[in-house]
């Protein structure tokens, strides 16, 4: 199968106020297959939001894409002009942003906000436009499409707002949806519900999805593949079953272990210490060597000297760690 979205050797940096360049993403490469859900796992500072933004070139003004290519339907998105990009955004590749309460226009009815997305990409007549908007709402709010589409964002619950964002994203029938922490601000039960909506849409519409999150547990039973980002680099990438069940990179392992497991292990004593990763996030990065080395419990001498390259453990599982270099 051929990847629908192919990210090749992507490098993104931010220009700091002092004028220097801080790398946010370094040499990120992966391909997204049609209909596949790729879970991108990373904590704050890992570059996961930069990844989402750079795929459709929606980055803060001080960001620079310094190298790489993003191939999509025969176009390199990193070299497309502004108008080509506008045509692709929302129509072929959609974005779902983090905070549903902030990603919607506060004084526009949500129906209108979906209609605007359709109007931006199709020169339909007024009647056809309204009909299409209705259909989208029927899909996302089967119970009460009309009431919701006439509401303003502040009249809706968090879950409903998130569904409106989904409605906007799928309105034009894109082939790729990029969702950046779409459930982070929701209650657990709403979170489950929204994941269900995503799963449904994938089945019905055959969407491919990049699902970005900091919570590995969300990817369980949801993502097909998992890519772990640490300090802007791919630490580990492989099928969800392999990565989530037997993580190999020391960071991935440590991250999974730091989640409380009281549930699954009866008799576990409470108030014991969780095996947390020591040190602070990606702030104090070493100048040389593996970025995880200062916090790694399995570090070796070589880790300080140079960066590990990606090692293929199997056809679909790569890890960037010296432990697996032969």
């Amino acid at each position: 199968m051929i990847a629908i979205l192919e990210i090749q050797d992507l490098h993104v940096s931010y220009r700091s106020s002092g004028g220097g360049l801080c790398p946010a993403l370094t040499s990120v490469s992966f391909g997204l297959m049609p209909g596949e859900i790729m879970g991108v796992l990373g904590e704050s500072g890992s570059g996961k939001s930069t990844l989402a933004g750079s795929l459709v070139r929606l980055l803060p003004a001080n960001a620079r894409i310094t190298r790489g290519a993003v191939q999509f339907e025969g176009t390199d998105l990193l070299r497309a002009n502004a108008d080509e990009l506008r045509q692709i955004r929302g129509r072929r590749i959609s974005l779902i942003f983090q905070e549903p309460s902030l990603a919607l226009h506060p004084t526009m009815r949500v129906g209108e906000q979906v209609r605007q997305v359709l109007a931006a990409h199709d020169s339909l007549g007024k009647g056809a436009l309204n009909e299409q908007t209705r259909q989208v709402f029927d899909q996302v709010f089967p119970e009460e499409p009309d009431r919701i589409s006439h509401s303003y964002p502040h009249q809706l619950s968090g879950g409903q707002r998130q569904r409106v964002l989904i409605a906007q994203a799928i309105a034009c029938g894109p082939s790729v949806v990029i969702a950046d922490e779409p459930t982070a601000s929701l209650d657990p039960t709403t979170q489950m519900e929204i994941l269900g909506v995503f799963r449904n849409l994938r089945e019905k519409l055959g969407l491919a999805m990049i699902f970005i999150t900091h919570n590995p547990a969300l990817l369980c039973g949801f993502a097909d593949r998992v890519l772990v980002l640490y300090a802007g680099k791919v630490a580990e990438c492989g099928s969800a079953e392999t990565v989530l069940a037997s993580p190999r990179h020391p960071y991935t392992k440590a991250l999974f272990h730091s989640i409380p497991t009281v549930f699954d292990r009866p008799g576990n004593t409470r108030k014991t210490k969780l095996p947390a990763i020591l040190g602070d996030s990606a702030r104090s990065l070493p100048i040389r060597g593996c970025p995880f080395e200062p916090r790694c419990t399995e570090k070796m001498d070589i880790c300080k000297e140079r960066e590990p390259a990606a090692v293929n453990l199997s056809a679909s599982h790569t890890v960037s760690c010296f432990k697996y270099e032969s």
Binding site: D187, T189, A217, C220, E241, V262
Partner: peptide, 26 residues
Amino acid sequence: ILKQPEQETTRQLLAAVPRLTLVPPL
């Protein structure tokens, strides 16, 4: 509460907790 939840609310909350079930005991 975790092992024998009596109320529906509690059961729902429990069911909604995402779990890394694939990870073997550590």
